[in-house]
């Protein structure tokens, strides 16, 4: 018997998932990556097992992914986060679709066909625009706790346009808005809108859409805004932030001959 473990070492958070022999999720964790990826991977791994009653005779198969995937000494194999996100997404949504993943430091658009094969991808890591880091930076400047962004955006009554790409330019733009007495709620919604626009610029986003990543996990209103923009429903998997880790664990499962139910 095996435990199948996927570890996604992202630039801001590290995620881990444990699957049992039937590819059922039995443990998971999300922690801050900090500067020491190796330590983060170890911590996330241990935390994911926290509530698992471990069978001592069970073996383990570990696949690491994400920005720090090569910093996981106990991993048997590495895979890119693109492949792992595609895998994790298709696990819950078994149709052709486009996955939008808004991560801490990057955003990805991944195309998946009906059989789960990846047909294309785009990744933006050029700057913070369109990523969680952008939201964090702005929250920081406005001295708002990041957890409160969703609630504030929901209460917006006006549409505010944030025009700049650049985090630094955006900060000055926001200062101007504050001076013009624009409400905080409206500004936050404007910020969400700007992140969404960056993602929409990456691809025409036709067909079915799935969204994942930390921003999606903590900000349901963000997804709602995307739905309004695209004029269609968006599927969000049960653990949106763990999509990459799940994909890695599923790859681990498959490399040991595991077949999904």
């Amino acid at each position: 018997m095996y435990y199948f473990i996927g570890i996604d070492v992202g630039a801001s958070t590290t995620k881990a998932i444990v699957l049992d022999n039937k590819s059922k999720i039995i443990g998971h964790s999300v922690i801050h990556s900090g500067a020491d990826f190796e330590a983060a991977a170890d911590k996330a791994y241990k935390k994911a097992f926290k509530d698992v009653e471990r069978e001592s005779q069970n073996k383990e198969r570990v696949i690491s992914t994400g920005y720090g995937r090569r910093n996981v000494p106990f991993a048997d194999l590495t895979k890119t986060e693109i492949s792992c996100h595609a895998k994790g997404s298709y696990h819950y949504y078994r149709r052709a679709h486009t996955l939008i993943d808004i991560g801490g430091q990057d955003s990805k658009i991944i195309k998946i066909d009906n059989s789960g094969k990846r047909t294309g991808f785009k990744m933006n890591r050029k700057c913070a625009a369109g990523t969680g880091a952008f939201l964090e930076e702005i929250a920081n400047r406005l001295k708002i706790e990041i957890e409160k962004l969703n609630g504030l955006a929901e209460k917006a009554t006006k549409n505010v346009t944030i025009g700049s790409y650049c985090t630094v330019f955006t900060a000055t733009e926001i200062l101007t808005k504050i001076r013009q007495n624009v409400r905080e709620e409206d500004i936050i919604k404007g910020i969400f809108d700007s992140v969404i626009k960056r993602a929409l610029e990456m691809d025409p986003l036709e067909g079915n859409i799935v969204m994942s990543g930390g921003v999606v996990a903590y900000n349901p209103y963000f997804v709602k805004m995307c739905e309004q923009k695209l004029g269609k429903e968006i599927f969000v998997p049960p653990f949106p932030q763990l999509t990459g880790a799940l994909g890695a664990a599923l790859f681990a499962f498959e490399t040991k001959g595991g077949k999904h139910a």
Partner: peptide, 28 residues
């Protein structure tokens, strides 16, 4: 994304992850 000479425009990690993911796509 990169440049002929100006390595400030090149992110090693980003380029390599993209290339690796591209090869994984070819493999599948």
């Amino acid at each position: 994304n990169g440049d002929l000479n100006d390595l400030r425009c090149y992110s090693e990690e980003q380029a390599k992850t993209n290339i690796e993911a591209f090869v994984e796509q070819l493999e599948s």
